[in-house]
Amino acid sequence: MGIPVSYYLVLSAIMFVIGILGVLLRRNALVTFMSLEMMFNAANLIFVTFAAYYRVLTGQIFVFFVMTVAAAEVAVGLALMVAIFRTKHSIDLDQMSSLKG
């Protein structure tokens, strides 16, 4: 393997941090979802890296499941966003304040 494992881990850590900052700081629901995807993919990258490193397949199989689950989550999220958009004409998370918190 030409590239050392640590490079992948650092890249994944950077992706994860960008993702988490995006979720916490951006107020547009669509951007938040994209940031969530970034966090999931950071995890996927580590799985694939270690699957190659240990030469076992479980990590790669895990990635398939994670991708499926992330897609399901986004599908539900988009449906809920459409429902909100119908009444509010906005998907800004700061405007979702009919509940107090």
């Binding site: 938040t32 969530l36 539900v76 809920l80 009444t87 509940l99």
Partner: peptide
């Protein structure tokens, strides 16, 4: 609206 909002908050 409250229900949908609670759904999306829970999801996030």
């Amino acid at each position: 609206q409250k229900s949908v909002e609670s759904g999306i908050k829970y999801l996030l």
